[in-house]
């Protein structure tokens, strides 16, 4: 049970949040121009990283805001939390 530092509300229990998978996958601006392969890449293919992962979380039972987290998926340690639309503070 993580403690997640919501950038809008502060530190809260994991149970208030919902995970939203890998971050920084941008929805194509012109989907119709994409091949089936390229569309599948956006739709389904994931890095599913073991180690430092950039991911999306939603404070669903709180402010309802989406934001990003950098987390080590091998031990679940949260490194940084940052707002949606901002550049990741670490590489």
């Amino acid at each position: 049970m993580f403690l997640i530092n919501c950038p809008f509300c502060g530190e809260r229990e994991q149970s208030e949040f919902k995970a939203g998978g890998e971050a920084h996958i941008v929805r194509p601006k012109q989907p119709t121009e994409l091949s089936d392969d390229e569309w599948a890449e956006y739709l389904f293919m994931r890095k599913n990283i073991k180690g430092i992962q950039f991911e999306r979380w939603n404070h669903v039972h709180g402010c309802r805001k989406w934001f990003n987290i950098v987390r080590d998926t091998s031990n679940d340690e949260i490194k940084v939390v940052y707002k949606m639309g901002t550049k990741p503070p670490i590489k």
Binding site: M1, K50, Q53, T73
Partner: peptide
């Protein structure tokens, strides 16, 4: 609902 390789899950 989150990706993890820690072989641990949440108590909830």
């Amino acid at each position: 609902d989150y990706i993890s390789y820690s072989q641990k899950g949440s108590h909830d």
